[in-house]
């Protein structure tokens, strides 16, 4: 279900916690699984449950509680835009509108080529850097003007194409 590399990463996370407290690694395990599969399917959640010796529903509770987990497929690049108040005061909504227009999709939608999913995010703890964009839960881009947003989309497209070629 998961690659050896992913399992090794999960094992490293498990080792952070005292013996018998494997469950503590559930968020990390789900994150690593999501990084590998793009989203958390029922099978993945069951696998994680078995790996960590937890009841599947307990894993499901965690997967549905933390909103960076995706329980449905998303595009290759999930772009999360913060529109909370401090960001909204400094262009967060303008940035979101610009992305919607450029990608032709609304929040919670995926472009037809499967490349981008747009999500409305809550506070990322970077309000001074508004507008703030998070790509695939990992890469944060700050102070995003329309020009920077455009070039980000371009570079992501290029990155994807390059990966496609390889």
């Amino acid at each position: 279900m998961l690659s050896q590399e992913a399992l090794a990463r999960i094992d490293r996370e498990i080792a952070k916690y005292p013996p018998g407290k494997k469950q503590s690694a559930v968020m990390a395990a789900l994150r690593i699984a999501q990084e590998e599969h793009g989203w958390l399917s029922q099978e993945i959640i069951s696998f994680v449950a078995e790996y960590l010796e937890m009841p599947p529903v307990a894993v499901y509770e965690v997967a549905t509680f933390y909103n960076m987990f995706d329980l449905k497929p998303v595009g290759r690049y999930k772009i999360t835009v913060c529109t909370n108040l401090p960001c909204a005061l400094s262009g967060g909504e303008h940035a979101a509108d610009h992305l919607k227009e450029r990608l032709g999709i609304g929040f919670g939608e995926t472009t037809s080529d499967g490349l981008f999913t747009l999500k409305e995010g809550e506070c990322m703890g970077a309000c001074g850097d508004a507008p703030v964009i998070l790509v695939n839960n990992r890469r944060m881009f700050c102070r995003m003007t329309r020009e920077r947003l455009d070039s980000l989309l371009e570079s992501l497209r290029a990155e994807s194409e390059e990966k496609g070629r390889r």
Binding site: V57, A58, V59, Y60, E61, F65
Partner: peptide
């Protein structure tokens, strides 16, 4: 544990695993 409270806040639902 066969039932859980999935999702959060007002969207919480008591449910078994899928």
């Amino acid at each position: 544990q066969e039932l859980g409270q999935a999702f959060r806040g007002e969207h919480s639902e008591i449910m078994p695993f899928l």
